[in-house]
Nucleic acid binder design. Structure first.
Lengths: 207, 207
DNA sequence: AAATGTAACTTGCCAGCGTCTAGTTTATGC
DNA sequence: GCATAAACTAGACGCTGGCAAGTTACATTT
């Protein structure tokens, strides 16, 4: 039997990828509570039960999406850092810029990645992807204060990461700079970054 | 007709409060995605449709719970600050301690309060409660650097709030100090706070 | 090249969800 | 005491995630 060109094949072929991609868009459109497996299936033009062959559960799909988010976050930080690869402090600032840019471009995904829900997924891939992003921060901070003792380094990592993460989180939730223009907001972010890096340099250099 | 003592009255009497209180416990037990109106009703021993007479929707109940969360957060910061009311820097640290203590005691509620979902509720009470907490931080930072220009003050508020918020958020998600004892974690938090306040003092005093 | 096994997909079902409508019970205000 | 409003119950709707059973297409082996 010849299959007419307009009819779709029984096997999708790349359903897994299609679900991840549809899910990501759905997530940004409707938020975490509006995310449903059936809508993902609908957008991929398959039946509501098809996703089960690629993801064990809704949480499993969310975990995959979050994992890719961490990989992209890492890539965004690295990509920004490569553009200013002259000195360690500038690279640390660039990492922060990449971090914030990713969060601003994918606000719901970012929230999912750092939510308690995601923490319960407990998949090894997600864990590894998150660790990779973390180690990038550790390395970048370490490069700024190479001679500081390990304890100081760790505290400066805490401090740096917390400041950047907290700032962009509060911005995305509208708690900081609600009436600001994007331009003014970016300026506030850069001021934050400058203050953070300056504190790291001063604390790490000082014994 | 005499009502036997063991049967419950038709009217609950304090259903609104009972739903808020049950909802709060449910939220911490099952997370945001496990929160359901029907389970709240069950725990308050009323029918599944009873909550509709007190809350227009599930989001409406969540908004009320989040609003109370902000009020408690404000109270927690004030209460800590009162215990060390000698100088401005110590009070700012105390505010931070109260902030983190509240978050640690109510992790899911804290996440709800600062989530995009909550931001969409748009109820005036929630907005006002959040602003009250914010102004506490503004006042505390302002007291530390009274002579600084407004712009510096605002940037130091951004910086302070972001650092504290980011730190406790990352801790609650297990991203910071996963293997640490509670004692070690608290020490890392206090180190963060010290670094933040020191930066505020230095930046605000310096022209 | 044919048969067989397996993976990808569909349809149909279940209980649970939020919300709406309609009806019942109790409290309140005149 | 009586009308009216408020608080609650019961039932229904369309949606959800997940499970079971059946269908289709591909892959592998002989």
């Amino acid at each position: 039997m010849v299959r007419p060109q307009s009819s779709k094949p029984y096997h999708h072929g790349e359903l897994r990828e299609a679900l991840v991609s549809a899910g990501r868009r759905l997530l940004e459109e409707r938020g975490i509570r509006g995310f449903t497996l059936r809508e993902c299936a609908r957008r991929a033009s398959v039946s509501h039960a098809a996703p089960a062959h690629h993801f064990a559960s809704l949480d499993d799909l969310l975990a995959e999406i979050a994992t890719r988010g961490y990989q992209e976050l890492t890539a965004a930080m690295e990509s920004e850092a490569q553009r200013v690869a002259d000195n360690a402090a500038a690279r640390l600032v660039a990492h922060g810029v990449g971090y914030m840019a990713f969060a601003a471009a994918n606000p719901v995904l970012f929230q999912l990645m750092f939510s308690r829900e995601a923490n319960r997924f407990e998949t090894p891939n997600l864990f590894a992807a998150a660790k990779a992003a973390y180690h990038l921060v550790v390395a970048a901070v370490g490069a700024v204060i190479p001679k500081a003792p390990a304890e100081v380094k760790q505290r400066m990592v805490d401090f740096t990461w917390a400041s950047i993460h907290g700032f962009i989180t509060l911005v995305l939730e509208g708690q900081i700079g609600e009436g600001d223009t994007p331009r003014a907001l970016k300026s506030r972010g850069m001021a934050m970054l400058a203050a953070v890096v300056e504190t790291v340099v001063r604390t790490g250099g000082d014994p």
